Computed example of a mutant assay.
Amino acid sequence: MRRILFFLIFGLSGLSVLLSLGFWQVRRLEWKNQILAEIEARISQPPVSLPASPDPNTDRFLPVAVHGQMQPEEIHVLVSVKKVGPGYRVISPFIGDDGRRILVDRGFVSTDGKQAERVSGSMEVTGNLHWPQEIDSFTPDPDLEGNIWFAREVTMMAKALDTEPVLVIAKSETDPTVTPLPVDTSVIPNDHWQYAVTWFGLALVWAAMTLYFLWRPGVRPKS
Score class of each variant (00 low, 15 high):
Phe6Ala: 03
Phe6Gly: 04
Phe7Asp: 04
Leu8Ala: 06
Ile9Leu: 15
Phe10Val: 11
Gly11Pro: 07
Leu12Gln: 03
Val17Ala: 08
Val17Phe: 01
Val17Lys: 00
Val17Asp: 02
Leu18Ile: 10
Leu19Glu: 02
Gln25Thr: 02
Arg28Trp: 08
Leu29Pro: 01
Ile35Lys: 11
Ala41Asp: 06
Arg42Gln: 14
Arg42Gly: 11
Pro46Trp: 00
Pro46Asp: 08
Val48Trp: 04
Leu50His: 04
Ala52Asp: 14
Asp55Pro: 07
Asp55Glu: 12
Thr58Asn: 11
Thr58Lys: 15
Thr58Arg: 13
Asp59Ile: 07
Leu62His: 02
His67Ala: 15
Gly68Asn: 03
Met70Phe: 00
Gln71Gly: 07
Ile75Tyr: 05
His76Tyr: 14
Val77Tyr: 04
Val79Glu: 12
Ser80His: 09
Pro86Met: 14
Gly87Asp: 10
Val90Asn: 04
Phe94Gly: 05
Ile102Phe: 05
Arg106Lys: 08
Val109Ile: 14
Val109Gln: 02
Thr111Gly: 10
Asp112His: 09
Asp112Cys: 13
Gly113Asp: 15
Val119Arg: 11
Glu124Phe: 05
Thr126Glu: 13
Thr126Tyr: 02
Trp131Cys: 06
Asp141Ser: 01
Asp143Val: 13
Asp143Phe: 11
Glu145Trp: 06
Asn147Leu: 13
Trp149Arg: 04
Arg152Met: 12
Thr155Met: 14
Met156Leu: 15
Ala158Gln: 03
Asp162Trp: 04
Leu167Ile: 05
Val168Phe: 07
Pro176Ala: 08
Val183Tyr: 09
Asp184Ala: 05
His192Phe: 12
Trp193Leu: 03
Trp193Gln: 11
Gln194Glu: 14
Thr198Met: 15
Trp199Ser: 01
Trp199Thr: 04
Phe200Arg: 06
Gly201His: 01
Leu211Asp: 05
Pro217Asp: 08
Gly218Met: 05
Val219Asp: 07
Pro221Lys: 00
Ser223Asp: 15
